[in-house]
């Protein structure tokens, strides 16, 4: 009979956050229309490596399975992307899976993206709408601007831009492109704009906007096509104005 088609995967594994990483090869049966996640599920179902030895199932993170949550990001054949939309038929084999090492590795392909959520808190990436009384409806947003802002709002905090950025690493405290672009999004909102100066102050602090080195890997890598470098340049302009305002301006808030 015809030989059964298989998929070869080389997974970079790590047992504990502080243990050394190692590679393990897997060979799993092929099915049509598989993605990296279904391949990992196959390993989980039958955790046997390519040498036929029994091993532990590979750990990874996932949630929505439709590229909107950002949880299943990993480095696939050298490029960071979501494993849910990484289709086996479109990948060169052996498929190499690695964790996004810019973040602390929890286990195998699972990383801790807490720093991104901390950054969102730091830059106040929200619209304050709560008061002690009914604040009423906010100002309207022009439709054209809403459509533009929608593109920026597609950010799913997946971490791909931080992984691609040469200036986000253990030697630097740069917060990275994603939270910066969120500052532009929330400053563009008519109600959010009330906190514009606070957000700018946050990104004009240590590890902020100025640490961008313009390698522009982020905009090339963003799975959502967010114009990250345009956001950064636009914020640079805002920061320039804010800088002069802070120094020469009046004490008016």
């Amino acid at each position: 009979m015809s030989e059964k088609k298989t998929i070869r995967l080389i997974v970079t594994r790590q047992d504990r956050p502080d243990s050394a990483p190692y590679e393990e090869e897997f060979e799993i049966p092929y099915r049509p229309n598989m993605n990296v996640i279904s391949a990992l599920m196959e390993i989980r179902r039958n955790p046997v490596n390519a040498k036929g030895e029994k091993t532990t199932p590979v750990t990874w993170d996932m949630n929505c399975l439709e590229e909107v949550c950002g949880a299943c990001s990993m480095v696939i054949n050298g490029k960071p992307r979501q494993s849910c939309t990484a289709l086996i038929d479109k990948l060169e084999q052996p498929i190499r899976l690695e964790p996004m090492r810019t973040f602390p590795v929890v286990r195998d392909l699972q990383v801790d993206r807490s720093r991104m959520f901390d950054s969102l808190k730091k830059v106040k990436a929200w619209i304050p709408i709560d008061g002690t009384y009914d604040l009423g409806p906010g100002p309207r947003m022009p439709e054209r601007k809403r459509q533009w802002a929608y593109e920026l709002s597609k950010c799913m905090t997946c971490g791909v831009c931080l992984e691609a950025c040469p200036n986000v690493n253990s030697k630097s405290n740069f917060i990275g492109p994603a939270p910066l672009s969120q500052v532009r999004l929330f400053n563009a909102h008519p109600t959010g704009a009330m906190h514009k100066a606070e957000r700018l102050a946050a990104i004009m602090g240590d590890g902020g906007l100025a640490n961008c080195g313009n390698s522009q890997n982020c905009v090339q890598s963003c799975p959502k096509g967010i114009p990250l470098t345009t956001s950064i340049a636009a914020l640079n302009r805002e920061a320039t104005i804010q800088m002069f305002r802070n120094f020469f301006g009046s004490d008016e808030v």
Binding site: A164, N169, S172, N214, N217
Partner: peptide
């Protein structure tokens, strides 16, 4: 600045990254 960067052109061989 130069020594706080972790160059990655082998993985991301884009024009601007080379310029970086």
């Amino acid at each position: 600045i130069a020594f706080t960067a972790q160059n990655n052109v082998s993985r991301y061989g884009y024009f601007r990254n080379w310029m970086f």
